[in-house]
Design a binder for these strands. Structure first.
Length: 214
DNA sequence: GCGACAG
DNA sequence: ATCTTGTCGC
């Protein structure tokens, strides 16, 4: 059998798709948040392993854990991360038996040059509330950092949330979310790790599954 | 003022 | 993201 090959990828067409999807991003948040789902994908070459961890909110008790694996043919390209991760994220969501109030994804929400980071992208595609949490900012034309907020063209797009180990995470609203609520939820999900607990667990599980498939 | 582009 | 060595802190 032939080896895995990369999928032809048209970056400019992908960016046009982002501009189109960005128009559908809503900032109306859910009335009640009773559960959150952390999702993350780990890689080993072109093998991808994803995990989803649903927890009650604000008590953070685990209610569901799912994992998926697959071949990833789309390379990583800054600002186009969603296209690389979407297949596994979609498979993860399809496996969930519960319906979390909010999804927390590793990456950015509207803190993105076309206002459609992976978290916002996932949210629009499935029309669910999402929050983006990243370890580093995305620097592009117009980005300014003032205090604990990042702004683009005078509007707030992300918040810096201090965490453990002197670390911090960059939080932005995805779909059906406001920056303030996103920040509140992320703060409420931080326990003893730098990443909010649902993401920390999803990251751990996805990485463990990857190692176990060796 | 320069540089910093998610995973 | 992942890989790698060295260092720090519980």
């Amino acid at each position: 059998m032939r080896g895995w090959q990369r999928c032809p990828f048209d970056a400019s067409r992908a960016m046009e798709a982002q501009l189109s999807l960005a128009k559908r991003v809503s900032s109306t948040p859910p009335d009640k948040v009773t559960s959150v789902c952390g999702m993350d994908v780990s890689y080993m070459g072109d093998r991808g392993s994803g995990a989803a961890v649903v927890m009650t909110y604000p008590n953070l008790e685990v209610v569901e854990v799912r994992g998926v694996e697959g071949t990833v043919r789309v390379p990583y390209m800054p600002t186009l991360l969603a296209f690389r991760e979407m297949p596994l994220l979609a498979a993860l969501r399809a496996k969930l038996r519960t319906s979390p109030s909010v999804y927390i994804l590793n990456g950015h929400g509207v803190f993105h040059p076309r206002r459609l980071g992976s978290a916002a992208h996932f949210g629009v595609v499935f029309d669910v509330p999402t929050i983006g949490v990243a370890s580093t900012p995305l620097w592009f034309e117009g980005v300014q950092m003032t205090g604990c907020r990042f702004t683009v063209g005078g509007r707030d797009v992300a918040a810096v949330v201090p965490s453990h180990l002197g670390g911090k995470v960059y939080v932005s609203a995805g779909h059906k979310m406001t920056l303030n609520l996103a920040e509140e939820i992320v703060r409420g999900c931080i326990r003893g790790h730098r990443l909010p607990e649902p993401l920390f667990l999803a990251d751990s599980y996805s990485r463990r599954a990857l190692g176990g498939s060796l």
